[in-house]
């Protein structure tokens, strides 16, 4: 409606400038990579010359083609029980942690979004609503975002270390160690999804006299749900990897078995566990693709 003088003409040069911006970004990336490599002393030659034993490398990667289910310790021990134990612990930790993280992520994500106090979805009629808009809403959202930032910016292994120092070794600390950062990670993305969900249906309900709770629960939440589910599934895959790694801290997940076998130089066993982890990840990925496709249709 408001004609912007010269807006049509400005487009051309901006487009060309955009091209060179991108080129500059790419150049910057390579420059940064080079500086980083120099800083770390990454010499492509030393990568090969400093290798102590080529035999170890040959043995290790050679073992990739012959994973085993019989222990290499010479005791003819069947490995399957250990594999299953590792898988069970990995799954149990990941699932328990994710079930906590999704709940916490939904609550935190909702608080960190601005749907419940900003915009046309809530009225501005009563004194309470005005206060919500001006002070209460923004400050609660601000605090929630800060909290989310703190949760997700500490790696799960560091959470594990701190929880171990604080509570001593128990399996509950492993679950918490995954659940805490994942709550933050999920909450951040959930809040964006809730904020970006189409608002038409919510506005229509409000126009029909619905209260805030209804507008948000019926008009907005179902619209964000497919994205939320898909993201939670993707994060479950990551949680499995995190749970596996926690094994290096003494929990009985796949990481524990990997490190134990590796330190005993039982490379074929190591590959058995690596392939098991691979299998788990493939199954979960396949499953989430299947579900996501459902969701698009449904």
């Amino acid at each position: 409606m408001n004609p912007k003088p010269g807006s049509a003409g400005a487009k051309g040069p901006r487009g060309r400038l955009g091209g060179s911006t991108r080129a500059r970004v790419i150049t910057g990336i390579f420059a940064a990579g080079l500086i980083a490599a120099v800083h770390l002393g990454l010499n492509p030659i030393t990568l090969f010359t400093e290798i102590r034993s080529w035999k170890v490398i040959r043995d290790f990667f050679g073992a990739a083609l012959q994973p085993t289910l019989i222990s290499e310790s010479g005791s003819e021990l069947f490995l399957l029980p250990a594999v299953l134990e590792g898988v069970q612990a990995t799954l149990v930790f990941a699932i328990a942690a994710m079930s906590l993280a999704v709940i916490a992520g939904l609550i935190l994500g909702f608080l960190a979004s601005s749907v419940w106090w900003d915009g046309d979805l809530v009225g501005g009629e009563t004194g309470f609503q005005r206060a919500l808009r001006r002070t209460v809403g923004p400050s609660i959202t601000g605090v929630a975002r800060l909290f989310i930032g703190l949760l997700r910016s500490v790696h799960e292994l560091l959470w594990a270390m701190m929880l171990l120092s604080a509570f001593g070794l128990s399996h509950a600390t492993a679950v918490l160690a995954i659940a805490l950062p994942y709550s933050g990670i999920l909450a951040k993305i959930f809040s964006e999804m809730i904020d970006e969900a189409p608002r038409g249906a919510g506005l229509a309900l409000r126009a029909a006299g619905a209260g805030e709770a209804t507008v948000l629960a019926i008009g907005i939440f179902p619209r964000a749900l497919p994205d939320i589910t898909a993201y939670a599934l993707y994060r479950f895959e990551c949680a499995l990897r995190s749970a596996a790694v926690l094994g290096f801290f003494g929990y009985p997940t796949l990481g524990y078995f990997i490190s134990a076998s590796f330190e005993n130089l039982y490379y074929r066993e190591v590959w058995t566990y690596l392939y098991t982890l691979l299998g788990l990840i493939i199954i979960v990925e396949f499953w989430s693709v299947l579900l996501r496709r459902r969701h698009d249709f449904a």
Binding site: G200, G209, P222, L225, P226, A298
Partner: peptide
């Protein structure tokens, strides 16, 4: 609640 509106973009909850 006594005024109904029909919108061009329908504004249903498709889910």
């Amino acid at each position: 609640s006594t005024v109904a509106t029909i919108y061009q973009d329908l504004r249903l909850v498709p889910e």
